[in-house]
Design a protein around this nucleic acid. Sequence first.
DNA 1: TCAATATATGAATAACTGTTCATATATTAC
DNA 2: GTAATATATGAACAGTTATTCATATATTGA
Lengths: 116, 116
Amino acid sequence: MTVCEHEKEHELAAQRAKANMPGEEEIAKVASAFKSISEPCRLKILFALRQGEMCVLHIVEAVGGTQSAVSHQLRLLKANGIVKSRREGQNILYSLDDEHVLAVLELACAHLQCHI
Amino acid sequence: MTVCEHEKEHELAAQRAKANMPGEEEIAKVASAFKSISEPCRLKILFALRQGEMCVLHIVEAVGGTQSAVSHQLRLLKANGIVKSRREGQNILYSLDDEHVLAVLELACAHLQCHI
DNA sequence: TCAATATATGAATAACTGTTCATATATTAC
DNA sequence: GTAATATATGAACAGTTATTCATATATTGA
């Protein structure tokens, strides 16, 4: 199978794309980050944390599901740098890691609005 | 199991979070959109399309993999409103759907830079 | 130290998803 | 109409992932 011939004007874009493709490692990291925010339960957690930091049981209350499931998801989100946590007495308070996370959430909602 | 008692100052955030939680349908759409950009092969396609619109075989050339796999991924990306396509002769030219997609990609990279 | 509360985690199962292979559809040139 | 090129798709298998259940760890107050 050969590349289409009569689209020479796009050949350049293809070459640039290949030259500028990020390495496998960076691709994997970005993919992992997006994957961590691509499940309904985890997404609900992030939407909840827009309101400020919260302990695990408050999160459970806001998003539904079991404590165990939420805790598993939180671990994944933290491992991917999406949320951060700090201990306060018996509680662990979670919050969005940085402004990028919030910005991505807002962009996603804006994108959906454009596609109604 | 009862909610932690000595964190009354966060109780409000939890209530707001529950009140402002998007509906299941919107959550599912956002999750689906993120899921579609969370696999290495699809992410490569998007990074490639930053250079401009491209036919399928050019995309295959830029990202590697088989034509069939890329085509399956393109269909998923299109179904989620991440890319769009137009026919030109024998070729179907794909491109990023809108500026939100590009912005999200840039944010993800910026986020990673902050976490090195 | 003991009980209570809050959170985390290992293992197992069930559900989901990506890739491959074979094949189908669509467009163009002859 | 036929051959060649470009793209899409259905089915099946393999790998991944989310949830559940049971239990472990950590902190606090008595």
